[in-house]
């Protein structure tokens, strides 16, 4: 990884700043949350604007009690996805820490690993206490790249995409007074920690890409892009879980998933959910085209 950001502050200084912020912000998650015995039914546990049916006829046609039940299962799904995603990213970071090429980032990785482990803990706590389960992941993982440099880039790209989409949901819910306090708090705490992780992730990915541009053929860069584009779609579409619809008592859950994904309102939502990360990937040249195009705003 190149040592400076194009004549700007050296990378090591930026990494150290993030480490210092992590140390200053350190908290004990096992004492931070007060877990209520149960959460109130008849209330949204996820912001209605974030529900996978929002903007579609189902939002209007389903009675509000049914939407409350759906929201309860959708938050369990969101936090389940988050827990599974953390496992995957931890596996990769643990393979990289204190290995050649990661000398400058390993100190930070210790904080990252610690914080992500704790995030996984409190997500799993919520899912088990209030949903009675963690939804299983329906993703098959297999390696498409043999070159370690390409695999590392792909892994860190996936980590950043996953974090930034999750952060879109966190930012939306952390101050939503309609939601139970514990849900606001989980989203807030996670957002605070992830702000550092995403800052770090962007630095790492940008510099990895700069290094790759000078060392691998264009064809490999396009293959990496294709993989990351596919991953972004997998993450977005994981929010449409037929098991959630079945648990919420909705008919034909698999068809519902297909119908929702095809609805234009959902395409607009997806563009908003990925706006920040997609903008970054386009600005850095990692993506040549958007995956989810924003609507052009009328002047």
């Amino acid at each position: 990884m190149s040592a400076t950001a194009g004549g700007q502050r050296p990378l090591k200084d930026l990494f150290q700043r993030l480490i210092d912020l992590s140390v200053d912000a350190y908290y004990n998650p096992y004492k931070t949350f007060v877990w209520p015995e149960e959460l109130p039914r008849g209330r949204y546990w996820m912001s209605p604007e974030l529900l996978s049916v929002h903007g579609t006829p189902w939002m209007e046609e389903l009675p509000e009690e049914r939407l409350h039940v759906l929201a309860q299962w959708e938050i369990v799904n969101f936090l389940s996805l988050s827990a599974h995603g953390i496992r995957e990213l931890l596996l990769h970071v643990l393979q990289c820490i204190h290995t050649p090429g990661f000398e400058d980032t390993s100190e930070y990785f210790h904080h990252f690993i610690g914080e992500e482990n704790e995030h996984m803990w409190f997500f799993a706590q919520f899912c088990r206490r209030y949903g009675g389960k963690i939804y299983p992941t329906k993703r098959l993982k297999f390696d498409r790249f043999e070159d370690p440099g390409l695999r590392n880039f792909l892994a860190f790209g996936q980590i950043l995409i996953f974090e930034e989409i999750g952060d879109f949901y966190n930012r939306s819910m952390e101050r939503d007074g309609r939601l139970p306090a514990i849900i606001q708090q989980i989203n807030h705490v996670h957002h605070e920690d992830e702000s550092r992780h995403m800052a770090m992730g962007r630095l790492i990915l940008k510099h990895m890409h700069e290094d790759l541009r000078s060392s691998v053929p264009e064809e490999s860069l396009r293959a990496l892009e294709a993989s990351l584009r596919g991953y972004m779609q997998v993450v977005i579409e994981a929010f449409y879980n037929p098991a959630v619809y079945a648990d919420a008592g909705l008919a034909e859950p698999y068809q519902l998933r297909r119908d929702l994904l095809a609805h234009p309102a959902r395409a607009r939502f997806h563009a908003r959910a990925v706006e920040r990360i997609q903008g970054f990937l386009l600005d850095t040249g990692i993506f040549k085209e958007p995956v989810y195009a924003s609507e052009e705003r009328a002047v």
Binding site: P136, K138, R139, L140, G230, Y231, Q233, Y254, R257
Partner: peptide
């Protein structure tokens, strides 16, 4: 199949068999 199609394929198999695939 690409990665996204693989997810949809798995879900389609579930739909055809009428029950979820165990983790």
């Amino acid at each position: 199949l690409d990665s996204l199609q693989m997810v949809n394929f798995l879900l389609y198999i579930e739909e055809v068999r009428g029950r979820e695939i165990r983790e």
